[in-house]
Simulated assay, not measured.
Amino acid sequence: MDTFTLLKYLTQFAMPPASMAVGLLLGGILALVGLRRLGVLVAALAVGETLVMAFPPVSDALLEPLQAKARAAAAEAPACCYDAIVVLGGGVTPAAPPFLMDPDLADAADRVWYAARLYHRGIARRVIVSGGSLLAGNSEPAKTEAEAMRRFLVDLGVPSEAIVSEGNSMNTLENIRNVRQMVGEARVALVTSAFHMPRALKIARQGNLNVGAFPTDWRLPAEARPSWDNWVPSIAAMAWSSISLREHVALLLDRRGEI
C-alpha cells in the first residue's frame, strides 16, 4: 500500500460515519476483554463525535473560516489577463467501464461550469483541466478526470482546441506541480471549491505557481437556508464538517508542499 492510499484510509476512518463504526467496534472489544467502562466511554465518544459534527452550526463554524479566506483571495485577484484557467480535479468522476460508462458530475462540478463561464468572459484563451484516475493502466480518454472535464467543457461551449488536459496528477500537490511545469512563470486563474481554495493557494505559493483565486462551489450561509437546515442534525452537515475539518488539518499539518 502506497502513502497516498494509506493517508486516504486514515482520513476516512478518522471522520464520521466511519469513525463511529470504528469506535463502536473498539468499544465492544474493550468490553469483551473486561474493560467495560473504557469500552462504554470509547463508544459514547464515537457516537458523540458523529452527532456533534452532524449539527449545522458546527459545520458552519468549521467551513466559514475557509470560505472567508477564499473570498479575501478572490477579491485580491486581477479580473483579467491570465495565461490559462486551471481547474483542479474533484468535480467530475471519470468513466469506469463496465460499471460507469460515462463521466459523472460530482458535488463540486461547479468548478467546471465556472471555468467555462470564465473562458466565455475572456479571462484566458485556454483551460487546463487537471486530474488523473485511480484506475491504473487504463488509457481510454474518459477514464481520467481531466478528460472527463474536457468533455464537459466542450458541452458547455468551450472549443476543444482551447482545452489542455493534465491527466497524471492524483492530488492537489501533483495538480499544482504538473501545471507549474506546463505554464512556467505565467499567471493562471485557479478554479477550485471555496473550501479547498486556501490549501490550494498555500501549495501554489510553495510551488511558485503564479495564481489568481477564482473560488466556486460555495455553501449558503445560515440566513439563506431554511430553518430546519440550520438546527436539525443532518448527513449533509456531517459531510461539510468532515470536509472542512480535513482541510483545516491539512493546512496545519501537511508539509509535503514544503518538501
Rank of each mutant, 00 (worst) to 15 (best):
residue 137 G to S: 14
residue 152 F to G: 05
residue 125 R to A: 15
residue 131 G to M: 06
residue 190 L to Q: 05
residue 92 V to E: 15
residue 153 L to H: 04
residue 115 A to R: 05
residue 198 P to L: 01
residue 133 S to C: 03
residue 8 K to N: 08
residue 136 A to T: 13
residue 19 S to M: 02
residue 85 I to A: 04
residue 83 D to T: 07
residue 74 A to T: 12
residue 4 F to V: 15
residue 18 A to S: 10
residue 225 R to Q: 08
residue 64 E to W: 07
residue 225 R to Y: 04
residue 190 L to W: 01
residue 210 N to E: 12
residue 96 A to E: 09
residue 172 T to A: 03
residue 182 M to F: 03
residue 18 A to Y: 06
residue 222 A to G: 05
residue 169 S to C: 11
residue 233 P to C: 13
residue 59 S to R: 04
residue 202 K to A: 14
residue 3 T to D: 11
residue 116 A to E: 07
residue 60 D to I: 08
residue 178 N to T: 11
residue 43 A to S: 15
residue 143 K to M: 15
residue 153 L to W: 04
residue 32 L to F: 13
residue 82 Y to L: 12
residue 36 R to V: 11
residue 19 S to H: 00
residue 244 S to M: 03
residue 181 Q to H: 12
residue 190 L to V: 05
residue 98 P to H: 09
residue 133 S to T: 10
residue 35 L to C: 13
residue 170 M to K: 15
residue 57 P to A: 12
residue 28 G to C: 01
residue 83 D to M: 03
residue 229 D to E: 13
residue 52 V to H: 09
residue 196 H to T: 08
residue 111 R to D: 10
residue 47 V to Y: 01
residue 187 R to C: 13
residue 183 V to A: 03
residue 67 Q to A: 14
residue 216 T to M: 07
residue 171 N to I: 14
residue 67 Q to K: 13
residue 186 A to T: 13
residue 36 R to H: 06
residue 258 E to C: 06
residue 217 D to Y: 00
residue 22 V to G: 00
residue 244 S to L: 02
residue 254 D to G: 11
residue 14 A to M: 03
residue 97 P to V: 12
residue 73 A to L: 06
residue 148 A to F: 14
residue 174 E to H: 04
residue 184 G to I: 02
residue 86 V to R: 00
residue 169 S to W: 09
residue 178 N to F: 09
residue 28 G to A: 04
residue 2 D to L: 12
residue 165 S to C: 14
residue 121 R to N: 01
residue 141 P to T: 09
residue 132 G to C: 09
residue 202 K to E: 14
residue 212 G to P: 00
residue 22 V to W: 00
residue 39 G to F: 03
residue 24 L to V: 15
residue 69 K to F: 07
residue 79 A to F: 02
residue 42 V to F: 01
residue 191 V to G: 01
residue 46 A to Q: 07
residue 78 P to C: 09
residue 186 A to L: 14
residue 40 V to P: 07
residue 55 F to N: 12
residue 190 L to H: 03
residue 38 L to P: 10
residue 251 L to N: 15
residue 256 R to Q: 15
residue 176 I to G: 00
residue 166 E to C: 10
residue 247 E to K: 09
residue 228 W to A: 13
residue 103 P to Y: 09
residue 179 V to P: 00
residue 59 S to Q: 07
residue 44 A to S: 08
residue 106 A to W: 08
residue 198 P to F: 01
residue 155 D to S: 09
residue 67 Q to M: 15
residue 31 A to H: 02
residue 222 A to D: 02
residue 38 L to G: 13
residue 52 V to L: 15
residue 199 R to T: 13
residue 114 Y to C: 01
residue 95 A to C: 08
residue 33 V to A: 02
residue 133 S to V: 03
residue 61 A to I: 11
residue 237 A to F: 00
residue 132 G to T: 08
residue 152 F to A: 10
residue 72 A to M: 14
